[in-house]
Computed example of a mutant assay.
Amino acid sequence: MSESEGPARRVGRPRTAVLSHERILEAAFELADANGPEFSLASLARRLGVQPSALHHYFPTKAALIAAMRGQITLRLGTHGFDEQPWHEAILPWARASIEAFGRHPGLIAALATLPIDGEPESIADYERIVAAFERDGYPSDLIVPALVALESFIIGSALDGLTPPDNLRPVHEPERAPALLRTEAAARAAASAAGITPAQRTFEFGLRALVAGLRAIGETGGVPGGADPASASSREISG
């Protein structure tokens, strides 16, 4: 071969793949953080510099991609000792890790929270670990999923609350119409400031501990405090 011909071209696939699960997920998180969950696979492909059909080899639908994104977030949560500790102890750092993970990707909160877990191994393993801890501690079987959903609902709501202004409940324009609210809202913000945290963080810690305490009490009685069944109590309230 002469020098003018140059080196022979390599045959076969390139050594470094253009795409990978990790690269696609990283780009998807960046796109969702910038534009929210309404991004398309086409816009993701443009960001990666490939054709949309190239993504289908890894994620056939956007729902499959969102599921993988939630799986990535779940992996970041860690185990938090559910295999050894009582559920009410392990659930506290798990909840804090969950709201931190949601807080990093606020544009995805609704999409991540409403997607079924079927077919997503990371979330299934996480829920299985938590449910097993509830069962091991003797929590009523029919109340475990409601307890878990209540906790997740609180975490999701708190993550959204963290996006609001710190004085969101302050009646600025007509304070004379709500003197009690103005007084207590100011007290809450002052207490959070004294603790060196935001009002949303202090509210989350208060609500988390209150919710866990209530769930423990219900689990010990097999129903709402006093022994009544939660479903029956709810039915009476609605019908009344």
Rank of each mutant, 00 (worst) to 15 (best):
P121S: 10
G207R: 07
L115Y: 07
S2D: 14
S4W: 06
S20F: 03
E152K: 00
A17V: 00
H88C: 08
L75F: 01
L48W: 08
E205M: 06
I91G: 03
A54V: 09
A54G: 13
G223E: 06
W87R: 11
I124R: 11
L48R: 09
Q201W: 00
A95I: 01
I91K: 03
L108D: 04
P121L: 09
S193N: 13
A133Y: 08
G119L: 12
G81T: 11
A8Y: 13
H57F: 14
V145D: 01
D137G: 05
S239C: 06
A233D: 05
H56G: 03
R209H: 12
A42I: 14
V11P: 05
V172Q: 03
R10Y: 03
G157N: 06
I130E: 02
S234C: 13
A101Q: 08
I66M: 13
A101H: 04
A191P: 01
R23T: 05
H173M: 13
P60D: 15
E3Q: 01
A191S: 10
R10G: 02
A195N: 09
L163Y: 11
P199E: 12
S141V: 05
W94C: 05
G196I: 04
E22K: 14
D118G: 09
L77N: 06
E26Y: 13
S4K: 00
A210Y: 04
E5V: 06
L92M: 11
S158H: 04
P7C: 08
A147L: 01
L75D: 12
V11Q: 10
M69F: 03
A111R: 07
F39I: 12
F29C: 01
G157P: 00
E22C: 06
P93M: 00
R183N: 06
S43N: 14
A111M: 08
R202I: 02
S193T: 13
R216T: 13
R70Q: 12
R177K: 09
I91S: 03
N168E: 13
